[in-house]
Design a protein around this nucleic acid. Structure first.
Length: 273
DNA sequence: AAAGTTGCCTGCAAGC
DNA sequence: TGCTTGCAGGCAACTT
């Protein structure tokens, strides 16, 4: 599910429900997700006040009043759903349940279980150190991106998915940004010209901002915290549109699909060069 | 069958 | 030569 816009959408929903409130009850309903929960996970969270909810790349980081930080990754199919505390039965894939002092219940549901939850001390070295600049931040500039890709012989699409190059871009928005910038996804990153990088950086920022404004993209699993779908999938120009006409040109072939690094890439061979 | 992610494993190449 | 390091590519984790 979640790339930067989806995680940011979830962060905003959780902030409204949880910021400034105390976790009065935490239920861990299975021993592991993609990896085991840390020891005494629920006990260490119970009674803690939530100071701030932040996002780094595709991770949520929740600052607690004891100096610890709750780290959450939604994997492929993770959802965070907010509702009132109730007696309703849980779903099979409701793995973690947070009840707050303002009567809210936040349920982490993740059928594929590729998600992660962990706890670390804020004063320790941050476990997300290797991650590159936030694409919506001021330091993500054409110059900065150029410096990070100048030695990379991998295709630009694959490089955009590398979280150490730029944070938070996944399979959907990599294809969409390259389409907007008019760059062919299979070109070696080191061969992309300065002028083209100067188109790519604003294309990345623009597509991510538009997607956040739309509540993210719901292909299948993504939900906002109120359970509603995101709706940016209706604005895709290439993603999952193989065989459909290119929205920007009159080429005969339309949108094509290829596999790069084991994952689908969608593009227009005529517009993107 | 393929899916929005991550990180581990392997193999190879380069550098010392 | 042989060791280490770092890419780059493939795959596994799981359910629908």
């Amino acid at each position: 599910m979640p790339e930067l816009p989806e995680v940011e959408t979830v962060r905003r929903g959780l902030e409204i429900a949880m910021a400034g409130h105390t976790l009065i009850k935490v239920q861990q309903r299975r021993p592991d997700l993609r990896r085991p929960f840390p020891p005494f996970f629920a006990d260490r969270l119970t009674g803690r006040k939530i100071v701030a909810l932040r996002r780094r790349a595709k991770y949520l980081t929740i600052d607690l009043d004891d100096g610890n930080v709750l780290l959450i990754h939604l994997g492929m199919s993770g959802r965070m759903l907010v509702g009132p505390i109730s007696e309703a039965p849980f779903d099979k894939h409701d793995h973690v349940v947070f009840d707050t002092s303002n009567g809210q219940r936040v349920i982490f549901n993740d059928p594929r279980r590729f998600g992660v939850m962990d706890l670390f001390e804020a004063k320790d070295s941050h476990p997300l150190q290797h991650i590159g600049p936030e694409p919506l931040g001021e330091d993500f500039t054409a110059k900065a991106l150029a410096a990070r890709i100048k030695d990379k012989i991998s295709p630009i699409k694959v490089v955009l998915l590398d979280q150490s190059v730029v944070a938070g871009i996944g399979n959907i928005y990599a294809s969409e940004a390259l389409f907007r910038a008019g760059i062919a996804p299979d070109r070696a990153a080191c061969d992309i010209k300065k002028k083209e990088i100067e188109k790519l950086v604003p294309a990345v920022k623009q597509v991510l901002e538009e997607a956040i404004a739309a509540g993210g993209s719901s292909l299948k699993d993504h939900r906002q915290t109120n359970g509603e779908l995101g709706y940016f999938q209706h604005s895709f120009k290439v993603y999952d549109r193989e065989g459909l006409p290119c929205p920007d040109c009159r080429c005969k072939e339309g949108i094509r699909r290829m596999t790069q690094g084991g994952r689908s890439t969608f593009y227009c061979a005529s517009k993107q060069r």
